[in-house]
Amino acid sequence: MRADARKNYDQLLAVASAVVTEEGADASLRDIARRAGVGLATLYRHFPTREALLETLLRTSFDELTIRADELEMSSSPEDALVSWLRDCVACAHEYRGVVALMMAAIDDTDSALHASCVTMRAAGTRLLARAQATGTARTDIDGADLFALVGALAWLNDQPSLAPRADHLFGVIAGTILTNPASALPGGEGDLSDDQ
Rank of each mutant, 00 (worst) to 15 (best):
P78W: 01
G37S: 05
C92I: 08
A5Y: 12
F171E: 05
E55M: 01
T135Q: 12
L170V: 07
I67L: 15
A27N: 09
A185R: 08
G39P: 07
A52W: 00
G188T: 03
D146S: 10
F62A: 11
D80K: 14
G152T: 05
L43P: 06
V99N: 10
R6P: 02
S112K: 07
G172M: 11
Q197M: 13
M103I: 09
S184G: 15
Y96Q: 12
R30G: 11
S112G: 09
A124F: 00
D4P: 05
V90R: 08
T135R: 12
E55Q: 08
A167M: 07
D63Y: 11
T126M: 03
V90H: 00
D88E: 11
K7Y: 10
L58D: 05
D141L: 02
R97N: 09
L53C: 01
H169E: 06
S76M: 12
R139F: 13
P161A: 03
A33R: 03
A25M: 13
D31L: 13
G24F: 11
C89E: 13
L65H: 08
D192H: 12
E64F: 04
D4R: 14
S75M: 13
D4Y: 06
L29E: 11
D159Y: 00
A36N: 04
G37R: 06
L170H: 04
D31C: 09
A14M: 04
R35T: 09
Y9N: 10
P48W: 02
R87Y: 12
G24L: 10
A132R: 00
L43C: 06
F47M: 07
V100F: 04
L129P: 02
N158P: 09
A25F: 13
T177H: 14
A41W: 01
D108C: 06
T49W: 07
L154V: 03
A33Y: 01
Q197A: 15
I178R: 01
R122G: 02
A183Q: 14
A145F: 10
T110H: 14
A25D: 06
F171N: 05
A113T: 07
F47W: 04
S84V: 03
T56M: 08
Q160W: 02
H46K: 02
D4A: 14
N158M: 11
D195P: 08
A52M: 04
E51M: 07
F47H: 11
G172C: 12
R6D: 14
P48T: 00
R45P: 09
P187I: 02
G136K: 03
P48K: 00
D146L: 04
L170W: 07
V83T: 12
T135L: 09
